[in-house]
């Protein structure tokens, strides 16, 4: 494989402290759905992978995690970046993916087509990282569930339509199901499988 020059640059300046920082942001967002986290350090993954999505990739992916890349992200630059910085294997099988990265500009496969975990091991499910247009300015979603005192609001713009439709089903098969991290540029938010989402009337 030819090495793309963008594959070698744009990682963490300080891998140890930067990945700790990004992880705490992701952890807080996952523990408190509706919270929007910010990736402040200068991570520059090859376009169109966003900074926050790239930072999540650097923080959580390695040789133990098969990664699925959506069609829009399956570029030599990004696969090279993933290989060089994380050493993570690529997979075409969605059910084998520990992490799946997708972009709003390409169609996202059904949530049910990814690994759902088993009843005995519900943790063996895919975590989807979906790049949306923005985390605000879209239709307002009302979130309920663990991590939320009463309700929380999130208005992601460019979230694929079927994600909302399939989300109820994702919740019904609890404890199985996928977890989602939404990213937009430097910002991110998380939707763990326990989160109940309803579309708030404007």
């Amino acid at each position: 494989m030819q090495i793309h020059e963008t594959s070698l640059t744009g990682g963490f300046t300080n891998p140890v402290l930067d990945s700790q920082n990004v992880f705490r942001t992701v952890m807080n967002c996952m523990a408190q759905p509706g919270t929007i986290g910010e990736v402040a350090m200068g991570v520059e993954p090859p376009a169109p992978l966003g900074a926050a999505a790239g930072a999540v990739m650097l923080t959580l992916c390695d040789h133990d995690t098969a990664v699925w890349l959506g069609p829009h992200l399956l570029t030599p630059g990004i696969t090279g970046w993933l290989g060089f910085h994380c050493g993570a294997p690529l997979t075409k099988e969605k059910t084998e993916a520990k992490f799946a990265f997708a972009h709003h500009k390409a169609p996202l496969p059904s949530l049910m087509s990814f690994a759902q975990g088993t009843l005995e091991y519900p943790d063996r499910s895919t975590t989807l990282v979906i790049e949306v247009e923005a985390l605000d300015g879209g239709p307002t979603l009302e979130l309920k569930g663990p991590g939320i005192r009463t309700t929380a609001l999130l208005s992601p713009k460019g979230l694929p339509e079927h994600v909302l439709k399939q989300w109820a089903k994702n919740g019904q098969i609890f404890p199985q199901g996928v977890d989602v991290i939404l990213t937009a540029g430097h910002r991110l938010a998380a939707l763990p499988r326990t989160c109940k989402i309803s579309l708030k009337e404007a």
Binding site: M30, T65, P122, D179
Partner: peptide, 19 residues
Amino acid sequence: DEQTKRMIRRAILKAIAIP
């Protein structure tokens, strides 16, 4: 080491998602 931390961090995220 960093690989261990990543493995534990992934476990923590799944643990939070499945209380």
